[in-house]
Computed example of a mutant assay.
Amino acid sequence: MNRLVVVTGGTRGIGAAIVARFRESGDKVVPVGQAEFDVTDEAAVNAFFTGMTVDVLVNNAGISSSAPLARTTRADWQSQMDVNALGAFLCTRAVLPGMVERDHGRIVTVASVAGLTGSKYTSAYTASKHAAVGLTRAVAAEVAGTGVTSNAVCPGFVRTDMTAKTIQRIEERTGKSGEAALAAMSPLGRLLEPEEVAFAVAFLAAPEAGAINGQTLVLDGGGNS
């Protein structure tokens, strides 16, 4: 399709799968990792996007950690809010005026089922993903009736390095299979693959998806979220 697509956190895991998906469709893709800029650095974000005509922005950069609320530090809270929510805000703000001016653009934020529900030991992560979903909906309200859309995908556990760390923590704590424990939490009975998330992102970013705005596409196999 020959669009310019920017994918934050695009060098591995879900991001790398998203990059591959868009490239297969003929788009020019700029995968952004920490080597390019820190999504929480306002000046760096603005400088990166200056002069760039972005057709699709995928806010995928994210981090996670888990702990009971009483053991969640302020630093844990702030770092996840910064990357998962502030980063999406800064990048969206940088590209949105140009999209609105051209009356064309797609913003897709990779959130999580944690952005729609709550689960124990994930207060900071859950709060940050709720913020990302809220941002998605607020931006959608601003651009309603234009050629720009803002949507989110909310996957369950995906087979990534981040999930591998969660699996390791479960196994160290319980001595049981971490992957089996996570799979049991999903109606799918398994982990999602990064390519499944990439498909959902590409769907929401498609030119034909202009009527889909302010939505959260849940990828959990049919749960209550």
Rank of each mutant, 00 (worst) to 15 (best):
C91L: 01
R190I: 09
A164C: 06
A47Y: 15
N224Q: 14
R159N: 06
A111H: 12
A35Q: 11
E101L: 08
M1I: 12
W77S: 11
G189L: 01
A114L: 15
G87M: 02
V83S: 06
T53A: 14
P207A: 04
E42S: 08
A144M: 04
V95W: 11
A211Y: 12
E208R: 10
M1F: 12
V58D: 08
T126L: 03
R12A: 14
G118M: 06
K120P: 11
A141M: 04
S79T: 14
V143F: 11
G214Q: 09
P31F: 02
V54A: 07
G147Y: 13
R137W: 00
S186I: 13
V201A: 00
G15Q: 08
G118V: 13
H104D: 08
L116N: 09
L204Y: 11
S123I: 15
A67M: 14
V100Q: 08
E193S: 04
W77R: 06
V139P: 02
T216P: 03
M1A: 15
A164P: 08
A131V: 05
V19A: 05
E195S: 08
N224D: 13
A114E: 14
T117H: 01
L191S: 00
A140W: 12
G115H: 12
A211V: 13
L182Y: 12
T50Q: 12
G10T: 10
G178F: 01
A111K: 03
V158P: 07
I63Y: 01
I63W: 03
S119F: 10
T109A: 08
S25H: 02
E208C: 09
K176I: 05
R21C: 12
F203E: 04
G51H: 10
V30W: 09
A85N: 00
T40C: 02
A94T: 05
R173C: 02
V148S: 06
T109R: 03
S66H: 09
Q168W: 01
E36Q: 06
V197K: 00
L219H: 01
T8Q: 12
A17T: 01
R12Q: 15
G13K: 11
I170F: 14
T163R: 08
R102L: 11
S123Q: 13
S25M: 07
V143S: 10
E179V: 13
K165A: 11
A140K: 10
V5C: 03
A180K: 11
V54N: 11
D27W: 10
A114S: 14
A164E: 10
A198D: 03
Q34H: 15
V39H: 11
V7H: 05
R137G: 00
L182V: 14
A200S: 10
W77N: 13
Q80C: 03
V32S: 00
G15A: 06
T73V: 15
A16G: 00
T8E: 03
A127D: 04
G9N: 11
